[in-house]
């Protein structure tokens, strides 16, 4: 026992000290990290619903909206109600976070109109696709294609779309385009179901 203690006392003491140090770091940064994440989601939500985001000289975003997290029965779904700042006035829309896999994990934020009939915007929250190929899903032109009616599930095509619910895939980035389209379809479908069942209750 004594021999064992002699061997491990350093590890034990260090673990205690470091554990305390980490706890302190966690405590002191936890709030800020959560705020950062919230800020990012809020910026993207404004882009996806209002369509623009003005920054002041310091690079601070000038918000026009507030987010209220929706309590949904589907716990895997993260969605927000987008309200004008101060909560005055009618609802601006909804923001839903869609998750999926392209070549790697993908997170997108989808903006929806207040009556859930239209997609007002698509923003990429997190992506690690191949630069020059898959990463082009971040491009404005590609994302703009998703601003359309949400009544029908979107369909990905590889040539110029002939119907309204069609989205044209990026050349050389079919898998990433497919992933985004599938994520949008699932997320929109889920959120509509969840919000409608919420409203019934």
């Amino acid at each position: 026992m004594l021999n064992m203690l002699k061997q491990i006392w350093l590890v034990l003491v260090l673990s205690l000290i470091f554990g305390a140090a980490l706890a302190y770091t966690d405590q002191s940064t936890k709030q800020r990290i959560a705020e950062n994440r919230q800020q990012q989601i809020r910026e993207l939500a404004q882009m996806a619903t209002v369509g623009e985001l003005v920054r002041d000289e310091k690079g601070q975003a000038q918000f026009k909206i507030e987010l209220k997290k929706l309590e949904l029965s589907d716990k895997t779904l993260v969605a927000y109600e987008v309200l004008p700042i101060g909560g005055k006035g009618p609802r601006v829309g909804y923001a839903v976070i869609g998750e999926g896999i392209g070549w790697d994990r993908l997170l997108v934020l989808i903006g929806l109109s207040p009556d859930l009939s239209k997609i007002t915007g698509l923003e990429i929250l997190e992506s690690r696709e191949t630069p020059g190929l898959g990463e082009r899903i971040k491009g404005d032109e590609f994302r703009a294609q998703y601003r359309k009616s949400a009544q029908k599930p979107l369909e990905l095509v590889k040539s110029t779309p002939t119907e309204d619910h069609q989205v044209m895939a990026l050349t050389g980035a079919t898998i990433s385009s497919e992933a985004v389209t599938a994520m949008v379809n699932t997320a929109v479908g889920k959120v509509r179901k969840a919000i409608q069942s919420n409203n019934k209750n």
Binding site: L10, V11, L14, S15, F18, A21, L22, T25, D26, T29, R32, I33, N36, R37, Q39, Q40
Partner: peptide, 23 residues
Amino acid sequence: LVYMLIVATFVTVADYMLQAYLF
């Protein structure tokens, strides 16, 4: 083991700091 303990601690600190101040 001790090296890893020490390194992991400082990396975690660095990671948290980056997340908090250089998000």
